[in-house]
Amino acid sequence: MGVTADICDVHKDSVRLADNVFYVFGQKKSFSGPIHTVRVFEDNVLVKKALETIPEGSVLVVDGGGSKRCALMGDNLAAIAEKRNLAGVIINGCIRDSGEINEMPVGIFALGTNPFKSVKKGEGQNDIPLLFANAAWKPGEWVYADEDGILLAEKKLDE
């Protein structure tokens, strides 16, 4: 995968930049893939379901409303992403078990950490356009993420 700086050099007019508000967790510091979305609020049931069902190589983008009052992912859900060979996860919310996750071969971008777990009501929406971090996240479009930032593109770019 090309790093985001290189992608910007070649495809400047074809990418959108998300605000740099995320921390990077896991051993995978860069990833790219097609976007699959989930919108939830302090409830991770649909996050788990998406991790179990979206295609291998995908990036799960979770809009948790920016809440930092609980975690939407911990080491158990990160293990699902690892086992299913997902490209990565971007969460507009928090994770927990960061020490364990940082030892795993996964790539997760999140707003921070919180030791509290989420509720389990199963409320939310799947596969819908999202808007957070001053960017539009659309199912089927592509995301490129690394330690320099997160880029979004309408389609897969030549790398």
Rank of each mutant, 00 (worst) to 15 (best):
V61Q: 09
A79M: 12
G124P: 15
G74Y: 02
V59S: 14
K121W: 14
N85A: 05
N102E: 02
V59T: 15
L86P: 07
D75F: 01
G107F: 03
L72F: 11
D97Q: 01
Q125P: 00
S67W: 04
I95K: 04
V106L: 13
V59F: 12
S98P: 00
V61S: 11
G112I: 07
G112D: 12
F109W: 15
E82M: 06
G57K: 08
R96D: 01
S58W: 10
A71S: 10
F109A: 15
G124R: 11
G122P: 12
N85M: 02
C94S: 04
I91V: 14
K121F: 15
V89Y: 05
D63C: 06
V59G: 11
K117M: 13
G107I: 12
D63L: 10
G93L: 07
K117P: 15
C70S: 10
T113C: 06
G124N: 12
V119T: 13
E123Y: 13
G88C: 08
S118L: 13
N102T: 01
A87S: 14
D75T: 00
E123T: 12
E100C: 06
P105H: 07
G74N: 02
L72Y: 04
L111G: 00
G64L: 13
I95G: 01
G107W: 03
R96M: 05
G66P: 14
K120R: 13
I80V: 12
G64A: 09
G112H: 11
A110P: 11
K120Y: 02
G122V: 12
M73C: 05
V59A: 13
N76K: 14
V89D: 04
A87T: 03
E103H: 08
D63P: 15
R84L: 03
G66F: 12
M104D: 02
G107V: 09
D75C: 02
A87F: 06
P105S: 09
S98G: 01
S118N: 13
G122M: 06
R69I: 01
I101W: 09
G122H: 04
M104I: 08
G88T: 06
I90L: 14
F109R: 15
A71I: 05
E123Q: 14
L111R: 10
G99L: 04
E82K: 13
S98H: 08
L86D: 07
N92V: 05
G57H: 06
G99C: 03
N76L: 11
S58C: 12
G99T: 08
K117T: 10
K83A: 10
N102W: 09
E82H: 06
I108N: 08
N76V: 11
G107P: 09
K68F: 02
N92M: 07
F116R: 11
I80Y: 04
N114K: 00
E100P: 00
G65I: 01
G57P: 07
G88S: 07
C94M: 01
S118K: 14
K117L: 10
I91W: 05
C70T: 05
G88M: 10
G93A: 07
E123F: 15
N85L: 04
P115Q: 03
K121E: 13
M104A: 01
E103A: 07
P105E: 04
L60Q: 09
L77C: 03
S58Q: 08
R96G: 00
E82D: 09
L111C: 13
G107N: 11
K117N: 13
D97C: 03
V62S: 14
N76R: 11
